[in-house]
């Protein structure tokens, strides 16, 4: 492996921001899953968890942008700018870079709908946001497939770890959804759980006395 110099700096930049992006996006997905269950992080109120989800996702977008632009600007391989937006339009690593472009497009859709959330119905926003379940695995496949970095050593453990925690979180999310009580039955369920021997009218002058209750 050669050192970093002016001709390889873009190449290294692209690779490293790619790895960081993967970690950030994994964190965003995990916190997003936590939010769907009204979960909390230690020491943070719920609105801060939502804020963290939002800010981490914007940070991830910044890293993805650097990752993409550095790859395009690097002259070692030729990737046309259009190939970063249109999937499978690149001559170099057509399939794996195509996955990356597809994941980025899905991310862009989620970001745009979230920024415009005020003006959209909940259904539309949610429908688009569910694309995270597609976008993240595609991004992971892209990062493993398009470079040899993640195929061995500590980076392989990192990628495997990301895949394991996200899978576990999704399983936890689905299990919770299966257990969820339908809205109309929630209150009745809670009420019957805390039902006490209720009071009755005219229970007499002596509430504790035998025969009056």
């Amino acid at each position: 492996m050669s050192g970093i110099n002016s001709s390889t700096v873009l190449w290294y930049m692209s690779r490293s921001t790619g790895v960081v992006s993967l970690v950030l996006l994994t964190a965003v997905v995990l916190i997003g899953l936590l939010i769907t269950q009204q979960g909390r992080l230690p020491g943070l109120p719920r609105f801060a968890v939502t804020g963290l989800h939002r800010n981490l996702s914007l940070l991830a977008v910044a890293f993805v942008a650097i990752h993409v632009l550095a790859a395009v600007a690097d002259s070692y391989v030729s990737i046309p700018l259009t190939a970063t937006v249109i999937p499978f339009a690149s001559g170099y690593e057509r399939f794996w870079l195509g996955l990356g472009a597809a994941a980025a497009d899905l991310m862009a859709a989620m970001i745009v709908t979230s920024l415009l959330r005020r003006h959209l119905s909940r259904r539309v926003w949610r429908g688009v946001h569910l694309l995270a379940y597609v976008s993240w695995p595609v991004a992971l496949a892209h990062s493993i497939g398009s470079s040899t970095d993640l195929q061995h050593g500590w980076a392989l453990y990192l990628a495997t770890g990301c895949a394991v925690v996200v899978t576990a979180a999704v399983v936890w999310r689905l299990a919770a959804a299966a257990r969820a009580v339908p809205r109309a039955e929630r209150v009745t369920a809670l009420m019957s759980a805390r039902r006490r021997p209720g009071s009755r009218p005219g229970s007499g002058r002596d509430l504790t006395g035998a025969g009056t209750r």
């Binding site: 009218p201 005219g202 229970s203 007499g204 002058r205 002596d206 509430l207 504790t208």
Partner: peptide
């Protein structure tokens, strides 16, 4: 009620 008594005399809810 804390002393175990109640002022109600009617058996009907109002």
């Amino acid at each position: 009620h804390e002393r175990g008594r109640c002022s109600a005399t009617s058996r009907k809810w109002f």
